[in-house]
């Protein structure tokens, strides 16, 4: 099959290019629309390129809504989740993989249960917890549901199990305690899976809509996702403004992806096969 296609593989290129157009066109169209006037956006037949490039939709949206706060909230939430979840998931995963302690198997199974439950089930109890802690409408509230990761423990445990025993035994003979082993040996060997888990965590937090919608109802406490949903309620059919808003919301993650492509793609691939 390999050779057969290589000999005359132009149909493959054509189909892939067609797929690319379908994948990219929505982004292109939203950018083009965002630079048109309202009247031009409603023209039939539509113009492809804007007659004159208008920047006013962007200034409209940014002055009417606290987009800077949306950014700060979104990335604040991501940073808090990353800082806590990476550390404590790695600790738990190391213990589950390499320290023989009482009840290890059973406790590990207990930690896996949430992976099988749709996350909506947790959301009202989590909301009540946020209310009790008085952290609704804050970045802490946004971060709350994502600070522990069953998936992270599972994935990192797989990784720690592949590290050869000899390394750890030598350290124990040298008088290293578990804490030292974890910090000086295990963590430095785990950069790749930690980066993968970090990207996973960040992407999930960035894309989530339901939790920010529920937890933070004040406009200046919203994330890019929930802020944008709010924007749609206000502008309803003013498409250039709506498209400007969505371009602003999509751009940071797309840029991050283009810079960190290898890590994004590599992480997904390993997470999927384990």
């Amino acid at each position: 099959m390999q050779k057969g296609i290589q000999r005359h593989n132009w149909p493959v290129y054509v189909l892939l290019a067609l797929g690319c157009i379908i994948m990219v066109f929505p982004f292109l169209w939203s950018v083009l629309t965002s630079f048109k006037t309202l009247n031009e956006s409603l023209k039939v037949p539509p113009t492809f390129l804007p007659v004159s490039w208008q920047f006013s939709s962007y200034t409209d949206v940014v002055t009417a809504y606290p987009f800077l706060m949306f950014f700060i909230n979104t990335f604040g939430m991501i940073i808090i989740r990353l800082a806590i979840t990476l550390l404590i998931s790695a600790m738990a995963a190391y213990a589950f993989a390499r320290i023989p302690f009482f009840g290890r198997g059973m406790l590990f199974l207990l930690c896996l249960i949430p992976m099988m439950v749709p996350s909506q089930i947790f959301i009202y109890p989590q909301y009540m917890l946020a209310v009790k802690l008085k952290i609704t409408n804050s970045v802490l509230g946004l971060a709350l549901p994502g600070i522990a990761s069953t998936f992270g423990i599972f994935m990192l445990r797989q990784h720690f199990m592949t590290i050869p025993d000899s390394l750890e035994e030598a350290a124990i003979l040298d008088g290293c305690g578990r804490g030292r082993i974890f910090i000086n040996i295990m963590l430095p060997l785990s950069k790749t899976p930690l980066v993968s888990l970090g990207i996973f965590t960040a992407l999930f937090a960035y894309k989530d809509l339901m939790w920010p919608l529920i937890c933070n109802t004040k406009i200046e406490a919203m994330t890019l996702s929930s802020g944008l949903a709010y924007l749609q309620g206000q502008y309803t059919t003013k498409y250039p403004q709506l498209m400007a808003g969505s371009v602003i919301a999509m751009l940071p993650m797309i840029l991050l992806f283009i810079v960190l492509q290898r890590q994004f793609v590599g992480g997904i691939a390993t997470a999927g096969l384990k």
Binding site: F27, K207, L209, M243, I254
Partner: peptide
């Protein structure tokens, strides 16, 4: 690229 885009923005587009 669609995988790293906010679903809210995508739905709006």
């Amino acid at each position: 690229i669609p995988v790293v885009s906010a679903p809210v923005a995508v739905a709006m587009v």
